[in-house]
Design a protein around this nucleic acid. Structure first.
Lengths: 215, 215
DNA sequence: CCAAAAGTGTTGGTTTTACACCCATGG
DNA sequence: CCATGGGTGTAAAACCAACACTTTTGG
């Protein structure tokens, strides 16, 4: 057996931590082991299309930020034979349409801190994705893909704090982020909590923008 | 025909410009067109090994910095059929052992500014490599792979000036680069030019180091 | 002695960091 | 009225950009 597979590391944020989408394998090899969602590339598909198909089919996940990560070609990475994996990294905000009708396939959002042993070389892929996520957050605007279209500055700050596992000073964060010119204030406020309402902001653009640097 | 190819963008610096290694194709399709050096991945090879083999076989090039770039999987990128290309980017200083006995294969170092139409999607791959080269130079120490083991600060500055097509202030460059702590002075000098001898420096390590930022 | 590149500091502006209090709301 | 997170400014330190002259050599 030989072929080209695509594996995807999908991150999302839930409460105060990062989740990764994992699938419990229902066949050999490594039956019942945890793996990144993946599949084989088809004749009429680019690798990107395969990644999107896999996320949709295995977990009902749509509407994501997707970027190619790395191609793993170690000779013995898969016991079934020579299988090369083109890996992707994806970001999305969690949505109620996820997992609809997927009860049998056991796709699961797993907190990053709880992930231990994955099958194949998927830990290696995951580590690579984490590195990339941090790097990209520093010099692009991709944070938009982890937030609602309108968000408070505190929510945005939390994205950075969760991913970098660091506390950030509120005043400095706001000053710096606003000075980047990526986001703009709306006239709306997030109300309903027993505290002062927070102003909602939006990204000016959802095209990926490069910044000089960030932290 | 279907398969997995590896294509390599090898950069080197000659005088005041960047060169790219190109091969003139000696068979169909696109006979006599210019292409990046490449080859098919073999059963017992990782993609990295393929890249090294190709550089050695087609141009006698050895001892390089090599890094995976991107995997191109467009369905019609190759008229022979479905061929996915794992691309690499490589850096080396030119060496007299290059091209030994390769007269028939016409591997050629071509100044980047002279490259126009390459076959397949190789212009796209080349553009991607140029971007990566600039990015990596900014936040790593890979400049070492374009220089002799011992080099003057002016030679190092030239690497940056050539790649970024920019003049850099000599005093500021030295101050900043020395403050990064990547290089150290040797006790040797480069003599023989009709001017004051320049002190030779060396990189403390040839492991790839990440910096905070550079320019 | 001349031409060429090597080598070297200072200043002003900008950016970054550290830090603490009042505000608006819901309950 | 109280608890909660929202929102705001300033000063000191670090960093960056601009800029010119003296030194050492080979010919």
């Amino acid at each position: 057996m030989a072929g080209i597979a695509v594996d995807v590391v999908l991150f999302t944020i839930e409460d105060d931590h990062l989740d990764v989408l994992l699938i419990k394998r229902n066949k050999k090899p490594f039956k019942n082991g945890w793996a990144l969602p993946g599949g084989f590339i088809q004749k009429n598909e680019t690798a990107e299309k395969t990644a999107l198909r896999v996320l949709k089919k295995e977990a009902g996940v749509n509407n994501i930020y997707l970027e190619q990560l790395y191609t793993f070609s170690d000779i013995n990475r898969d016991p079934r034979g020579r299988i090369i994996s083109i890996s992707f990294f994806a970001l999305a905000r969690k949505d109620k349409t996820w997992f609809k009708g997927k009860e049998l396939l056991t796709p699961t959002l797993t907190p990053l801190s709880k992930i231990t042993k994955l099958i194949f070389d998927h830990n290696k892929i995951l580590n690579y994705a984490i590195q990339r996520l941090k790097a990209k957050l520093e010099y692009t605007n991709i944070a938009y893909s982890l937030l609602e279209p309108e968000f408070t500055l505190t929510e945005l700050q939390h994205v950075y704090e969760i991913i970098f596992k660091a506390k950030i000073d509120k005043r400095n964060f706001r000053k710096k982020y606003l000075s980047l010119g990526l986001i703009q204030a709306t006239e709306k406020f997030k109300r309903g909590a027993k505290q002062r309402p927070a102003r909602l902001f939006e990204f000016k653009s959802k095209k990926v923008a490069q910044l000089k640097k960030f932290f």
